[in-house]
Structures are given as structure tokens and as C-alpha cells.
Simulated assay, not measured.
Amino acid sequence: MTGVTSVYPQYIARSGKILTIEERINVCFQQSMNGKPLPYNRDEMQAKGDFFRLACMISPAMEIMARSYPALFV
């Protein structure tokens, strides 16, 4: 998941268009999970997009810390 939001918006050949991270989340809901898409203006969709953006910022820092202080991450 590291860096996934840095490549969005991205052209997705299967969809034939450029998708935002929120649109990609909905594609996953529909195709991978056989679920219903979330409306883009809902708090839940905003939270999912924010989660991916935050996780992508934190992941590189956590990786550096884990390498520097491996005993903390056992």
C-alpha cells in the first residue's frame, strides 16, 4: 500500500478512464467484493480516501523506524 495514492489519479485500462483513489475504492467494492459503491459525498468515502493518503505518508516513516530499531517491531 505504500505510495498507492501518489499514482492517482491514474488511467485504468479495464475501466477505460482516469480514476481517482475514491473511484478506485468503489471499483474494488464492486468487482472484488461484489458490493455496492459508496456515494462520493459520504463521510465513509472521504474517510477511506483519507485513510489511504495517511497510510501512504506513515508507511515510509515506519519502515525506516523498523530498520533502525528492529527490537521495537518484533
Rank of each mutant, 00 (worst) to 15 (best):
residue 44 E to F: 15
residue 59 S to V: 15
residue 49 G to F: 00
residue 24 R to C: 06
residue 41 N to L: 07
residue 47 A to T: 04
residue 57 M to Y: 13
residue 62 M to L: 14
residue 19 L to M: 04
residue 43 D to T: 15
residue 54 L to R: 10
residue 46 Q to N: 13
residue 34 N to C: 05
residue 49 G to C: 00
residue 20 T to D: 12
residue 12 I to N: 03
residue 6 S to W: 00
residue 68 S to E: 11
residue 67 R to C: 05
residue 39 P to Y: 01
residue 47 A to R: 12
residue 37 P to Q: 02
residue 48 K to D: 04
residue 1 M to R: 07
residue 32 S to R: 08
residue 54 L to G: 09
residue 14 R to Y: 04
residue 67 R to D: 10
residue 32 S to H: 12
residue 29 F to H: 05
residue 21 I to A: 09
residue 40 Y to S: 11
residue 19 L to I: 01
residue 33 M to A: 03
residue 61 A to G: 10
residue 8 Y to D: 08
residue 38 L to S: 02
residue 5 T to Y: 05
residue 67 R to M: 09
residue 72 L to F: 15
residue 14 R to C: 01
residue 49 G to Q: 01
residue 36 K to F: 00
residue 30 Q to H: 13
residue 53 R to S: 07
residue 40 Y to M: 12
residue 29 F to V: 02
residue 45 M to G: 00
residue 74 V to P: 03
residue 2 T to R: 09
residue 59 S to D: 14
residue 28 C to W: 13
residue 30 Q to S: 07
residue 41 N to I: 04
residue 53 R to A: 09
residue 55 A to C: 11
residue 5 T to D: 11
residue 41 N to G: 14
residue 50 D to P: 05
residue 19 L to A: 01
residue 44 E to W: 13
residue 10 Q to E: 06
residue 17 K to G: 06
residue 28 C to R: 13
residue 50 D to F: 10
residue 12 I to A: 04
residue 11 Y to H: 08
residue 14 R to S: 08
residue 48 K to H: 08
residue 59 S to E: 12
residue 60 P to E: 03
residue 23 E to S: 00
residue 9 P to V: 03
residue 43 D to Q: 12
residue 37 P to Y: 00
residue 35 G to I: 09
residue 60 P to Y: 05
residue 22 E to F: 00
residue 68 S to K: 15
residue 30 Q to F: 15
residue 3 G to Y: 02
residue 73 F to T: 05
residue 67 R to L: 09
residue 15 S to Q: 14
residue 72 L to C: 12
residue 45 M to I: 03
residue 46 Q to V: 06
residue 61 A to I: 14
residue 66 A to N: 10
residue 6 S to A: 10
residue 69 Y to I: 10
residue 68 S to H: 11
residue 20 T to F: 12
residue 16 G to V: 10
residue 11 Y to Q: 07
residue 8 Y to V: 03
residue 67 R to T: 09
residue 69 Y to M: 06
residue 29 F to Q: 00
residue 42 R to S: 15
residue 2 T to I: 13
residue 70 P to K: 05
residue 18 I to W: 09
residue 13 A to F: 11
residue 4 V to R: 11
residue 27 V to H: 03
residue 55 A to D: 06
residue 35 G to H: 04
residue 63 E to D: 11
residue 62 M to N: 15
residue 17 K to C: 09
residue 69 Y to S: 05
residue 37 P to G: 00
residue 35 G to W: 03
residue 19 L to P: 09
residue 73 F to S: 04
residue 30 Q to K: 04
residue 46 Q to C: 08
residue 10 Q to R: 10
residue 7 V to Y: 15
residue 66 A to F: 06
residue 14 R to F: 06
residue 46 Q to E: 05
residue 71 A to I: 13
residue 47 A to G: 10
residue 8 Y to L: 07
residue 12 I to P: 01
residue 52 F to P: 14
residue 56 C to V: 03
residue 27 V to Q: 00
residue 8 Y to N: 04
residue 13 A to P: 01
residue 23 E to L: 02
residue 26 N to W: 01
residue 6 S to Q: 06
residue 56 C to L: 01
residue 69 Y to Q: 05
residue 42 R to F: 14
residue 48 K to L: 09
residue 57 M to H: 15
residue 53 R to T: 03
residue 57 M to P: 14
residue 42 R to T: 11
residue 24 R to M: 08
residue 25 I to Y: 07
residue 7 V to L: 14
residue 4 V to W: 01
residue 44 E to L: 08
